[in-house]
Design a protein around this nucleic acid. Structure first.
Length: 391
DNA sequence: CGACTCACG
DNA sequence: ACGTACGTGAGTCGT
C-alpha cells in the first residue's frame, strides 16, 4: 500500500484553495475590524488577549493548564451569542485549517517519480493495535464538513478505473456485543435493526416505531460513549440538554437493559488490576501500569483504557487479518485491483472496473470472515471516481 | 520542542 | 475540589 500510493487530482485542490482564499481573507478582515486592530488570528495567545482583555467578552475566562486563555471551539461556541466576531473566528478557524493542513500541504507530498502520494503506516505506534499514518497522514482526511468533503474529491482512481471503499458497519458495537455476549445487543444486530433506534426503544421503554429523533440521537451518543467508559458528566456535556443526574439515569437504564455491558466493564477492570494488562480476542495485550494508581483521576483513565482497548484493539486485529485475506485473494487470482489505503474500519482500492463483481465478493468475504464472532458483521461498499463518491 | 487547536475513526 | 469518553498526526505559534 505504501509503495502503490494513491493518485491525486491537484487541480481539485488548487480550485478549492482559490475559492477558500477570498473567503478566509474576508473573514480575517472582518475579525480585525471587530477587534479594532490587526493581530495574528492564528495565534491562540493573541486571540485570547483580544477577546478577553480588550473586548472583555466574559468576566472570568476559562484558562488552559498553562494559564493562557482557552480559545478552543467549545469555548468560542459558548461565546457566540455575545459578539458577532466569534462566529467569524470559528469559520476562519475551520477554513484556515482545511487550507493549510490539506489543500496547501498535500501537493508537496506528491512523489515526483510516481506522481502519487505514498503515506507511511506505523505498525507499532499505537497502544491498541491500530495502524497510524504519517507523512502525510491519510487517516484524517476531512469528511464531516461540506467544504472539507471537497478535499476527498482530489483522491482519484487511475485513468479509466474506479475507487472502491469497503467499511465495517458499526464494528466497535458489534465487537462489544460479541465480547459481552449481551443478548439484547446481539439480538438487535442479528435482526438487522437500526442499532441506535433499538437502543433508544430499550432505554426509554417505548416501541421501536415510537422512538423520536431526539431519543435516537441520545441513544447514539450513549452507544458511542459506552466503549470509552462513559461517565454521567461526559454524557451530559455531550448531550448539552440534560443534567448530570438525568445522564446518570440514562446510563442506569442502559445498564439495566443491556446487563452484559456493566459485567464486561467490571471484568476488564478487575482483570487489569489482577494481571496488569488486558487483551483483544486474538491475544494482543495492553499493559496498564496506572491501573492501581493512588491518584483517582489517573486510575480512572486506566480503567477506561481497560474497557476500550479490547474493543478498539479487536477491531484493529480484525481489519489487519482482513487485509491479509484480501491481498492473498487478489494475488492468487492475479487481479489488477490494488489495495491502497486503510482508515481503521475502511479499506480503499484502485478498482479495475472489469473486476468489480469478483472484487466486491472477495473484499466482503475477506473482511467478514477475518474473525469468527458471535455477532454478525456487515460491510458497506461504495464505488466512484473519487474518494468522496466511493464513500 | 511544548502548547494549543483540530482533522479523522 | 477536580477532572472526566478511546485512539491518532499535523500546522502554527512562541520559546
Amino acid at each position: 500500500m505504501e509503495r502503490e500510493g494513491i493518485l491525486m487530482d491537484e487541480s481539485v485542490l488548487v480550485e478549492t484553495g482559490q475559492s477558500l482564499e477570498g473567503h478566509i481573507e474576508a473573514l480575517r478582515n472582518a475579525v480585525n475590524q471587530s477587534a479594532g486592530r490587526e493581530f495574528n488570528l492564528n495565534s491562540p495567545k493573541q486571540l485570547g488577549e483580544v477577546l478577553f482583555d480588550e473586548l472583555k467578552l466574559v468576566e472570568k475566562a476559562k484558562k488552559t493548564k498553562t494559564g493562557q486563555y482557552a480559545t478552543n471551539e467549545k469555548v468560542l461556541a459558548s461565546l457566540a451569542p455575545k459578539h458577532p466576531i466569534v462566529a467569524n473566528i470559528l469559520e476562519y478557524r475551520q477554513l484556515a485549517k482545511l487550507k493549510s493542513t490539506y489543500i496547501d500541504a498535500l501537493p508537496h507530498s506528491i512523489d515526483s517519480a510516481s506522481g502519487r502520494v505514498h503515506t507511511h503506516y506505523g505498525q507499532v505506534q499505537t497502544s491498541t493495535g491500530r495502524l497510524s499514518s504519517n507523512d502525510p497522514n491519510l487517516q484524517n482526511i476531512p469528511v464531516r464538513s461540506k467544504q472539507g468533503r471537497e478535499i476527498r474529491k482530489a483522491f482519484i482512481a487511475r485513468p479509466g478505473w474506479k475507487l472502491l471503499s469497503a467499511d465495517y458497519s458499526q464494528i466497535e458495537l458489534r465487537i462489544l456485543a460479541a465480547l459481552t455476549e449481551d443478548q439484547g445487543l446481539l439480538t438487535a444486530f442479528r435482526q438487522g435493526r437500526d442499532i441506535h433506534a433499538a437502543t433508544a426503544a430499550k432505554i426509554f421503554d417505548v416501541a421501536l416505531d415510537e422512538v423520536t429523533r431526539e431519543q435516537r440521537s441520545t441513544a447514539k451518543m450513549v452507544n458511542f460513549g459506552i466503549p470509552y467508559g462513559i461517565s454521567a458528566f461526559g454524557l451530559a456535556q455531550r448531550l448539552g440538554t440534560v443534567s448530570r443526574t438525568e445522564a446518570q439515569e440514562i446510563i442506569n437504564n442502559y445498564f439495566e437493559q443491556f446487563p452484559g455491558i456493566p459485567g464486561y466493564m467490571t471484568r476488564m477492570q478487575d482483570r487489569a488490576k489482577a494481571q496488569g494488562y488486558v487483551e483483544t480476542i486474538s491475544g494482543r495485550r495492553r499493559h496498564l501500569r496506572d491501573i492501581n494508581s493512588s491518584n483517582g483521576t489517573i486510575r480512572a483513565a486506566a480503567e477506561r483504557n481497560a474497557i476500550n482497548m479490547p474493543i478498539q484493539g479487536t477491531a484493529a486485529d480484525m481489519i489487519k487479518i482482513a487485509m491479509v485475506n484480501v491481498q492473498n485473494a487478489l494475488t492468487e487470482k492475479q487481479l489488477n485491483t490494488r489495495m491502497l489505503l486503510q482508515v481503521h474500519d475502511e479499506l480503499i482500492f484502485d478498482l479495475d472496473p472489469a473486476e468489480e463483481t469478483i472484487v466486491r465478493e472477495l473484499v466482503t468475504e475477506g473482511m467478514k470472515d477475518a474473525l469468527d464472532l458471535k455477532c454478525p458483521i456487515e460491510i458497506d461498499i461504495g464505488i466512484g471516481d473519487n474518494w468522496l463518491e466511493a464513500h
